Simulated scan of single mutants.
Amino acid sequence: MMRVTPFSVSGTDYYVISHQNITERKIAEEDVRSRANIDGLTQIPNRRSFDEFLTEEWRRCLRLKQPICLVIIDLDFFKILNDTYGHQAGDECLVKMGKMLKAFINRPSDICARYGGEEFALVLGNTALKQAQQLSNKLLDKITALNIANKHSPTESYLTASIGLAEMIPNAQTSKNELINQADKMLYKAKDNGRNRIES
């Protein structure tokens, strides 16, 4: 950081220029800012970060008249997994999900986030529904491939997930909340139709 301090002596103007190294302070500030947006357990963006990202991506897609997709993932019978194997096993399951989702998302217009409890969300900017469906199918396969035991689950003896998917092309009459509501409705439809599936 540079400071310039003017002063005069006998009618002549002078300037004192001083430099201060604030690198450590800036690193500390960035660290605090980063922690505020990252879920402590899964080390992926948290709900606050998700909300901010969705708002920005919605505006970008509105401006460019591009589609945006929202994927909401709910781990099936996660409470049973916790009750059967203990909360530490439940936490380990969430950490594995976080790692897998972080590797799954690789475009600047996309984000994976912990949406709440055992729910996760993906925002896919400039992505049509058909493409998002293909990605969601791959995601469901990757969750199965984690091979996390859930022996008392009514669905399967391993961890499965229900996925709700919605697409919108933003316009002046719509809002991101409508996209969230649509994806949420599809998630509940997936649960009602037997879980371990995608509804869009």
Rank of each mutant, 00 (worst) to 15 (best):
K102R: 12
T55Y: 14
K189N: 11
A36W: 02
A121S: 15
A132Q: 15
R63F: 08
L187P: 09
C61T: 09
S175M: 13
F78Q: 02
F104M: 11
D91R: 04
D31L: 01
E30W: 00
I80K: 01
E29Y: 01
L187H: 00
G11N: 08
N106A: 04
T155G: 05
C69G: 00
N177P: 03
A149I: 10
I105R: 03
N171H: 13
P67G: 11
L187Y: 04
V16A: 12
S175P: 06
N37V: 05
T127R: 04
T155Q: 04
M168E: 03
C93T: 09
L81Q: 06
A132I: 07
E199C: 14
D13M: 06
D13S: 03
L94N: 09
R33T: 11
R35T: 09
I148G: 07
G117W: 09
A145E: 12
Y158C: 03
D51H: 13
N177M: 06
K189Q: 15
R35E: 02
I44T: 07
N147F: 00
Q43Y: 08
D51K: 03
K151C: 13
I105D: 00
D83T: 14
E156H: 12
T12A: 14
L165M: 12
N150L: 01
D74H: 04
V123D: 01
C112Q: 15
N147P: 08
A149L: 06
W58I: 10
K65S: 15
E156C: 15
N46K: 06
K185Q: 09
H152L: 15
G164W: 02
L62F: 13
S8Q: 15
C112T: 15
L139T: 08
F120K: 07
L139D: 00
E199D: 11
L122C: 14
G86H: 02
L101Q: 00
D76S: 07
E30I: 02
N193Y: 11
D31T: 07
N46M: 10
D83A: 04
L159I: 06
M2K: 07
R197G: 10
F53S: 04
D51G: 05
P108F: 01
G194C: 04
P6Q: 00
E118V: 11
F53W: 14
T84F: 07
K138R: 14
I105V: 12
A36G: 03
G98M: 06
F120H: 08
S162G: 06
D141Q: 05
D192C: 08
A89G: 04
K102E: 06
K102S: 10
E118S: 05
T55N: 12
I143R: 02
Q88I: 10
V95Y: 11
N126H: 12
I73H: 02
R3N: 10
N147H: 09
R59A: 13
N177C: 04
S136V: 13
V123K: 04
M2R: 03
K189D: 09
Q43V: 08
L41R: 12
H87Y: 13
E24N: 11
Q182E: 10
L94I: 01
D83K: 13
R59W: 02
V32R: 05
